[in-house]
Design a protein around this nucleic acid. Structure first.
Lengths: 386, 386
DNA sequence: TATCTCTTCGTAAACGTTCCCGATAGGTGA
DNA sequence: TCACCTATCGGGAACGTTTACGAAGAGATA
């Protein structure tokens, strides 16, 4: 016969069914339900983290005092403060950012959404972001969309669940609907766009000198005496694609050159696309005498392929591109590029985000253009140098 | 005269000093201290996140029920569950991972410590880690040490404060003391080392085929007829440096070639180091006729510099390297490399970490060697191909 | 009707931290 | 001695979530 844990009676106990696999009892005299308990109380889990509670226990003070000591707050005597800090050091305490963030409503973490880490541009951006974030005492959470809209949405969802304090976004190629981030923006989540920006939301935007760079590259080609300049552009939807094409068109117009639609190819940056474009251009009655590739890899691929085909660079064909410096230097002939500063983009973007976070919504929106630099090498030097 | 909020007396109130800028009172009749309160109760902060409490309020049920519904637990009727899930969707709810992690003691976040994101190898590793982490529903927090021991320690400290569930580490060049991670390991924090591993702690280690790759590269050089093979190694402390050198030495020994100390240069992977090494080797009475650079960038730099110096590659000087495929293909002459699979390394490392996490300490430690692949190109082809 | 059963829901504690507010001790000046 | 003061400490609520366990009710069985 069982005993009621409440009134200690053992005469008025009846069985009252099963619950969660255990027998349930009912004490009629005090009207109390209960189950048999199992005497299992082992907590063998090794404790990885020291808490302020541990410190409080050791010191014989309250957790409030420990908190004050560790955060250098007032209302505490220097002696106590130092003693606690010493113990904290000894016990190898470090604060649980989760609990901290949880209670203060901020997590000291920012989220970054990019298409692909492996692309040197984004790796550089990340490096810049990291640096600035570290200076501000923030951690960085990174997600890749792999150019998939769906993944991007899921990623942002995940970052949001982790309660990031802010978001740095560079959209995937696929992304054309922005209701998700629009709603986040409306809710007041600090966000900054960079590179692959989105014009439909009123966030600060960090961009590279796409228009100006393209303009400078094409103008350089024209000054070198090239007349029939083709452009190997990216996907039509991509903003950098549009901007760089605009720079290209503007340079042509400015210098009175004809714009020929057959010289304008849009593609997906793949090697196949680049080579096929070159093939098709060569079959024109008037093939281009220079190519502006908005992606440096395509430019490099064109150079390699031209060598295979026996095309003389830069005399028969001038080539310029956007982007990465190192590879451009290595290829033969070295590639004239408009060099961008990925790390700088990351730094500027992160700094902007921290401004937005600090100013709590009432910031003045601002767009920033990170300057690039024209680097002239042999792939476009038709004239003798000088 | 003030009124005591406890006994409502207003005759026995005396001032009792100041506290936190406010006047303090003392009621003598009920022995109660109090301050004047300021009637400020505004909460204008826009709410970014919906909580289960919000849902519970809307539905008129308890938060426990909401939690059960959203986590597909038992003890709930299908009708209620569906209704709650519908509301949750409408209210755009997503769970606060912080609170969740906080209460369950796990954060669904892993930390990664690497020397530098910008290096293609690590970018590739990260990409692999990300992918596997996503599959497991984990988020990734990344830190760069920038090859600084101090930064590395701080980073790990920070990740720990964020209560990551596990750690993936590739050490900086500087790191020679491992007491920090040793103590973490002893506390039971799941950890996996990759690439720049640490032999002093009994963690699972993911390595690349350093020894085997170096052996294959050098053997290939020997088979091509090169006799005086030099090695451009990295810092002595670095394990990959040691392993690759061992492979080099083993190949020489196996084929009966003399080991010449003057052919072995240790450095910091910098361009200056590579060029200076080539200069110094050329001044030897018997300069090397082939160079094995354990870092592909050094190999590429040697190729470029050799061209400047008018050295014929591969006839006068054969060159082979470790690493990145794309750049190796682009350079002229194309570089023979032992290709590694960074993404694979990341995937394997992450998978291993999740195994460790899942098996809660009682896992069997295992080291994994991620296979590489010898890719022969022109920079080492002395003999006509075939 | 008395006893037993199962389903479904609510209550409350716990996680680690911060912060508001009151408590207490020891002063000072009249 | 009484009114007043300051410095320093503790108690406890709050943050969002999960979960152990009890409550309530309906139905089944005797």
């Amino acid at each position: 016969m069982e005993t009621c844990p409440k009134c200690s009676s053992n005469t008025s106990i009846i069985r009252a069914g099963m619950i969660r696999g255990k027998v349930r009892y009912h004490c009629k005299s005090c009207d109390f339900h209960f189950t048999k308990e199992h005497p299992e109380k082992s907590r063998p889990t090794k404790q990885i983290h020291t808490t302020i509670k541990d410190i409080a226990q050791v010191m014989g003070v309250s957790i409030a005092t420990v908190s004050r000591a560790l955060n250098n707050k007032s209302d505490i005597s220097p002696k106590t403060r130092e003693a606690i800090q010493k113990i904290a050091l000894e016990l190898d305490y470090n604060p649980n950012m989760f609990a901290k963030g949880f209670q203060r409503g901020e997590t000291k973490t920012i989220g970054v959404v990019i298409p692909n880490i492996k692309r040197p541009f984004f790796a550089g951006v990340l490096s810049g972001i990291q640096e600035v974030a570290n200076e501000h005492g923030y951690r960085v959470m990174i997600c890749q969309s792999n150019e998939s809209f769906e993944t991007e949405v899921t990623n942002i969802q995940g970052l949001l669940a982790s309660h990031v304090d802010g978001l740095l976004i560079s959209h995937s190629k696929e992304t054309t609907r922005f209701n998700q981030i629009k709603s986040l923006f409306d809710k007041g989540l600090p966000m900054v766009h960079f590179d692959r920006i989105c014009t439909e939301v009123d966030t600060p935007k960090i961009r590279q000198e796409d228009f100006g760079g393209a303009y400078q590259l094409v103008e350089h080609l024209i000054q070198q005496g090239y007349q029939r300049i083709a452009i190997l552009a990216g996907p039509t939807e991509l903003l950098i694609s549009q901007k760089r094409k605009e720079g290209y068109l503007h340079a042509l117009k400015k210098h009175g050159l004809e714009i020929r639609p057959e010289y304008i190819h849009h593609g997906d940056f793949s090697k196949e696309f680049a080579l096929a474009s070159l093939d098709s251009w060569r079959q024109l009655p008037e093939p281009p005498d220079a190519i502006f590739a908005i992606h440096y890899l395509n430019a490099v691929e064109i150079i390699q392929y031209s060598k295979e085909l026996g095309i003389q660079i830069p005399n028969e064909l001038g080539i310029v591109g956007f982007g990465d410096e190192y590879l451009a230097e290595i290829v033969h002939p070295a590639l004239t590029v408009f060099h961008l500063f990925p790390q700088k983009v990351g730094e500027v973007a992160a700094q902007m985000l921290f401004r937005v976070i600090a100013e709590k919504g009432n910031y003045k929106r601002e767009d920033i253009l990170v300057q690039g630099k024209l680097i002239i090498r042999k792939s476009s030097l038709k004239k003798p140098k000088g």
